[in-house]
């Protein structure tokens, strides 16, 4: 994460997400997967108590994040401003 903060945030719509894992592959630095396969902000990416449904992404990850939005099979992702 750059010191000036995230370039954008990747919002996860949990009501749609089915944990297929494409986003975690495209954004390995930002996302891992939990016990059941659902995307989980990588350790250190989101402070505890912070909003885990809006994962910060860096400028370098923005293109991959947009790919994830496009390719998500459940249309569960969108980019939101920081």
């Amino acid at each position: 994460m750059s010191p000036i903060g995230p370039a954008a945030r990747l919002h996860i719509d949990w009501t749609r997400c089915d944990g297929r894992g494409l986003c975690a592959e495209l954004l390995p630095e930002a996302l891992t997967r939990d016990d059941w396969g659902y995307p989980l902000a990588a350790p250190g990416r989101v402070r505890s108590g912070a909003d885990k449904s809006n994962v910060p992404v860096t400028g370098a990850e923005l293109a991959a994040a947009m790919d994830a939005v496009k390719l998500c099979p459940l249309l569960a992702l969108r980019i939101t401003r920081p």
Partner: peptide, 12 residues
């Protein structure tokens, strides 16, 4: 749909 990769080919 299975959510599985194909050998070395990733899901996306």
């Amino acid at each position: 749909r299975s959510g599985r990769p194909l050998l070395v080919i990733p899901r996306f």
